[in-house]
Amino acid sequence: MRIGIAGCGRIAERGYVPAALAAEGVTIAGFADPDGERLDRCRRLWAEEGDEAPGFADVASLLASVAVDLLVVSAPADHHEALAAEAAAAGVRSFVEKPPAPDLEGARRLADLDPQPLIAFNRRFLQGAELRDSIPAEGWLELDLELRFRRDSWGAHEAHDEALLDAGIHLIDLACFLTDSAPIAVRGAEVKHERADLEVELARGRARISCATDRSHREAIRVTDRSGRTLARSHWGGIGGRLAGLIGRPDPLVVSLQRQLEAVGVSLMDPPHFVQQGYPHRLATAADGVAALAVVEAARRSAELNGAEVTVEQAEATA
C-alpha cells in the first residue's frame, strides 16, 4: 500500500513515519506540508531506513504527482475536512487523525465524502485489542476510562485542542467500541480547556470518562458487569511506562499506527477483508467519527447546563 502523508507535525514525525517503516507492505510515496522544515525532517526520517519520498507544499501537488492508495491526514483538525475532500476528489480514500473535525457538522461532511474516510482512533488497536475479547457480547457494562498526559511534553507545532477533543474523544470512541453500542446521552459533564469529566449512557452500559492534558501520563480502563465484577482492565503509563521505554519496548503509539496501517491495507484489498491476523478489530469509520463528535457536543452542552443530561444526536451517516 502506497500512502501519502498530509501534515508533517509531531504525529507524522513520531508516529506515522516509524509506523510505516515497521508495517508490512506499506511505503510512503510522498509528503505534503507548507512548512519546509517540517517537510524535510519527515523526508529525512523516512529516507534513513526507507526509500526517498518527494515532498510537496500542498496536497494537490502530491496527489497530482505520485500515485497513492491512501492519504493520511495528520494536519491540525481545522484542515481535516478540506484535505480529505481533496483526496476524495482524486478518488483516494483518506485516513484522518483524531479529532476527525472540530465540530459535529464537520464530521458529518467528512462522512458524506466518497470514498468515505477512515478515522485514526488508535486506542481501538491498543486497549481495544487488549480488552475486547474479555468482554461478553451481551449484558450491561460499567466502564471507567481515564487518559491524561502533559501536552507540553508532546511538543505539537500548532494543534492545541481542548482536552475533550484531544484526549476525551479517544475514550468516547473506545467506550462505544468496547461495548459495541451507540451513545444515548451525556450527563454530569465538566469541561475546561485542559480537563474534562463526563458520564456517557450507552445502549448497553455506562461510561465514566476523565481526561486531562496537563497531568503526568496515565491510561486506565476498567470494565465491570452490573454486579461490580471486573471483566477487563488495563493500566498504562506512570513509572511502569517510563521503565518500558527505557528498556526498549516498542512505543505504543507506533505500534497502534502500524496495526492500523496494516489493517487499512487489508481493507483496501479486492475483495476487502476487515479481519487481519493478530488483531481482528475493526477500523473506525467516518460514521464512528460522527458518533464521537456528537458525544463531544452533548458534553459541551451538558457542561453549559451545569451537568444536566443531554441527549446525543444520532448519526445520520452510515459506515
Rank of each mutant, 00 (worst) to 15 (best):
D251I: 00
D197I: 07
S256Q: 13
A232G: 10
R249L: 10
E201K: 12
V310Y: 03
S94L: 06
A23K: 04
F274N: 12
E130A: 15
R300K: 12
R187P: 02
A88K: 08
A111N: 02
R249P: 00
L118K: 02
I169C: 10
L164W: 01
G128V: 01
P102H: 04
A75E: 05
A89S: 15
S153K: 10
G15F: 10
G106C: 12
L147R: 14
W236Y: 13
A47T: 02
V290W: 04
A175S: 15
E158V: 11
A315W: 01
R109V: 00
S210C: 09
L145G: 08
D112T: 07
L243K: 05
V275Q: 15
V17N: 12
H80N: 15
R148I: 00
A84V: 04
P136R: 11
G9M: 06
R195Y: 11
G9K: 10
P280W: 04
G168N: 10
N122P: 00
H80L: 09
A287S: 14
V59P: 09
R2I: 01
A12P: 10
I184T: 02
D144L: 09
I209V: 15
V92H: 06
A299L: 05
E49I: 00
S210F: 04
R43K: 01
Q258D: 02
R123E: 03
I209Q: 15
A315E: 07
A87W: 07
S94Q: 05
A207E: 12
T318V: 11
D58H: 13
A22N: 12
L70I: 14
A299E: 06
I172L: 15
G4D: 05
K98E: 02
D152F: 08
E81M: 06
A185K: 07
F95T: 05
I239S: 09
A75R: 05
A19F: 01
D78T: 14
W46G: 01
P183W: 02
A89Q: 15
A185R: 15
A12S: 15
G4R: 04
L147D: 09
V66G: 07
L104I: 07
G55T: 04
E199K: 13
R215F: 04
P102G: 02
A294C: 08
D197G: 14
T213C: 11
G240C: 08
L71Y: 09
D78S: 13
C42W: 00
L141A: 06
G307V: 02
D166Q: 13
R150F: 04
A53K: 01
S216I: 05
R242N: 02
L126N: 10
A12K: 03
P250Y: 05
E190I: 11
E13V: 00
L145P: 14
A120D: 10
F56L: 00
L104D: 04
V254I: 11
P272A: 03
I209Y: 13
G278A: 08
G241H: 01
E49V: 00
S65H: 03
H193W: 11
